[in-house]
Design a protein around this nucleic acid. Structure first.
Lengths: 240, 240
DNA sequence: CGGAAACTTTGATCTGGATCAAATCGCGAT
DNA sequence: ATCGCGATTTGATCCAGATCAAAGTTTCCG
């Protein structure tokens, strides 16, 4: 294949991809330039407001997405309304469930977000054609599995205080703007969402947050902005 | 390749594989006959007693296994001894963590079991050579991920009674000898293990089991043998 | 067969986190 | 500015499940 020529031909469609945060992410990083071009032609950038649903639980979904910006929460709800967040995904993660059309969970933007949406059929075909893509998706699935199991430990065996510290630690670790000295970040989740992640109530979440604040492990500005003067100290609150 | 000839050559090594419960499982079902022969040559059947460890948490593991018979539990323990079972695997599941040598959890035989052990290096090579194998392992990983998330909901949001019912339902559903009429099975887990799976204490597990027994949803014979006269009734106890 | 250890059940009490109930804060709209 | 509403914090009380403490059961070994 003539690389220079395809560069020229691609110029129109590739502009968006070239500067894309997910260009070297799980999906796009595994594609040949012609595959990338094809996917680019059929994909669509979409901004989603915080709180709006990307995939509904129980629905058939005909598309996958890449997260370009923002945080997406994966939720399960029971018929009586009890709900549990079962995963958080950050840019440039892939969102979707290969091999199964019906979603067993809902995906919802936790913050204002930007996603790149592309058709399920097309990616499914590419998965079967590109072993490297399969491998990367397999790898992401295994990482999500590790994370899910870590959260099973947190949900089953940690105290309320440890749970909150674990979540703050997780977010501090994944949040995008890693400043050098003291870690500080914008919480992508409301107190209610934190409660739904940790299997507790908003009141308990709030009490544990003020406990951490009063003990000097964190500072809180405007509810959502968290400052962690010493990450080791926060890590110690998890006790594992 | 001459099929007839390879059959003859294989006769010695393939005997074990030919009658194997996992012959069409995740791993072996995806292999060509020559790959199967090679894997067979380097694999080893091993019986493991209930309670003995297959992989230690934090250890480097140089092998994978297939479960031939029995139940394997995946555990995480915290430095202070609290522990959580994060997965149960049944024959003919694959056990191991592709792409990462160090195990973040331990795998232990819950019942007396039989496993087929083979070298990591060899399977890793086959994974990169056989897209179908990658696909099947990817698929198993996604199923385990679905299961882990279902358990996150159980751990975070269900009551003690619902948790026990959920576990009995899971085991009844996966246990091998599915009789036609009333479902009955041998519990692969002790009360202590059930407690470690559900994030509760043995006393609470015991009380919930007797509650289910007294309400007629289950019958218990000899602690470990469970009879479920009506699975729908059990399912209703889960309330989702 | 006896007896001890391990497992399970049952009972009594305690407590961490839930629930119920107000304040308080921040923010957008009038 | 100030009103009003949703989000958060704080306080008071309650309760599901933990903890503490004994009994049974079963198994298995001498």
């Amino acid at each position: 294949m003539d690389v220079a020529r395809s560069e020229v031909l691609d110029a129109g469609t590739l502009v968006a991809c070239r500067s894309c945060q997910a260009r070297h992410g799980v999906v796009c990083g595994a594609l040949s330039s012609s595959q990338l071009r094809e996917l680019g032609r059929h994909s669509l950038r979409r901004t989603v407001d915080a709180g709006s649903e990307i995939i509904a639980q129980g629905a058939e979904s005909s598309f996958y997405s890449n997260i370009m910006r923002g945080v997406v929460k994966l939720c399960k709800v029971m018929p009586d309304g009890r709900q549990q967040i079962v995963g958080l995904q950050f840019a440039p993660d892939f969102v979707g469930r290969p091999f199964v059309r019906e979603s067993t969970l809902s995906a919802e933007a936790a913050t204002d977000a930007e996603i790149c949406v592309f058709p399920r059929n097309l990616l499914d075909r590419m998965i079967s054609e590109a072993p490297e893509l399969q491998r990367r998706l397999h790898d992401q699935a295994l990482k999500e599995l590790d994370a899910a199991r870590e959260w099973m430990l947190t949900l089953g065996r940690r105290t309320a205080g440890e749970k909150v510290a674990s979540l703050l630690y997780l977010i501090a670790t994944h949040a995008e703007p890693q400043t050098a000295t003291s870690t500080d970040f914008e919480l992508p989740l409301s107190r209610a969402e934190i409660a739904d992640f940790l299997g507790m109530t908003i009141e308990t979440v709030s009490r544990q947050m003020t406990r951490l604040r009063k003990s000097g492990v964190i500072r809180i500005e405007n509810f959502r902005h968290i400052i962690v003067p010493d990450m080791d100290e926060l890590e110690r609150m998890i006790s594992a």
